[in-house]
Design a protein around this nucleic acid. Structure first.
Lengths: 193, 193
DNA sequence: GCCCATGTTGAGCATCTGCTCAATTGAGCA
DNA sequence: TGCTCAATTGAGCAGATGCTCAACATGGGC
């Protein structure tokens, strides 16, 4: 196996851990899944991380925050008229609900794992800030009015988390269009349109 | 250990399994937690259930549906004016978000476990029907109007699932009042009040 | 070209997991 | 009283888990 620099190997391990976690779930993914995927000895993982829980938490923190920043950039580059549509499309762009599944899993895991709780809370607040910005942009662009952007953003955020259930279960419809429609109507309600 | 009738023992095991699952999470609860809690040999569990996954799924199905029926009865006995308040109080009556945590957990587990998926979908539809009935009662009692009760019920259902995150994480506030407020405002919006 | 800090290995331990199966117990009927 | 069958036991297996540690390998700096 090629010998990598410490920082590079660390990043590689975190990435592999995230993929494994998304696939198998936080409660079932194991260190061996990660080392096998990288063709690497089991000791290497513990050379970089004090334990599996730490690695898990770092993987979730890193990649969830990266995803949020990606969406934020995408929205920043979108026209005001396309904001809601872009967000809606992004919500449903998750075949099998894999990433949304991990997100629900991480929220629940936060009950038991303080490091996971810290990672999830950071993502929670960051995502809320993104939604507040979206709402403010829409209001400033004359797409409606919103008396309490913070509350509206929490409601939208929380609704999207719940829509994950619809995407995962395929209920009431296996087409993600229904989830999209519910989110769009929520935006309309929040903006008094 | 006292010897029980088959049906009685079965019920006892399902109940203990549910309690263990709520406490430790679907991915960490083990058959031994159940047998230890009941002071019972490990073979007994497999005498009544083909496997741990079957028992888990039956426990979730049984107790989640029972909880939904409880709420339904409670709402049926409430005055029209108290409907939203009762539902809101029930939402937040879950110290540490234990039961809501299990619910999120079960939704995510449905991705991997078909029997869990079947149980969760049944609860999902049953709960939606309860909310549709609530909405219709409110409309008939003159508390507002609702052009699409089915969509509104899905939005409320999904919002409540998401509010579980707020209750579990204590974010943005560790007081459950904020979650209650968001839900009440959602009802107001859905009913055009 | 040597040398050492550092990346890397993997056998192995203690512990846990779900599940099997031959053996034992006991309640209720005849 | 005895018999029968269902309820119950628990040691034990095969496999998985996180993590340790002594040993090995190698690339960059001298």
């Amino acid at each position: 196996m090629a010998r990598l620099s410490g920082a590079e190997r660390r990043r590689q391990i975190v990435k592999a851990a995230y993929e494994v976690i998304v696939e198998k779930g936080l409660g079932y993914a194991a260190t061996r899944d990660v080392t096998r995927k990288l063709n690497v000895g089991s000791g290497l993982l513990h050379h970089y991380f004090p334990g599996w829980r730490e690695l898990r938490a770092e993987a979730v923190r890193t990649f969830v925050l990266a995803e949020i920043e990606d969406v934020d950039r995408m929205l920043a580059g979108a026209k005001d008229d396309d904001l809601v549509h872009s967000l809606t499309a992004w919500l449903a762009d998750d075949p099998g609900g894999q990433h949304w599944g991990l997100w629900l899993n991480a929220i629940e895991e936060a009950r038991r794992d303080p490091q996971m709780a810290s990672a999830v809370k950071e993502a929670y607040r960051t995502w809320h800030a993104v939604l507040v910005r979206v709402i403010n942009r829409l209001v400033e662009a004359g797409h409606g009015e919103c008396p309490d952007p913070a509350a509206s953003a929490w409601r939208l955020s929380v609704l999207m988390d719940g829509l994950a259930g619809i995407l995962i279960l395929g209920e009431p419809s296996s087409e993600p269009d229904y989830a999209k429609r519910l989110l769009k109507e929520q935006f309309a309600m929040e903006l008094n349109t």
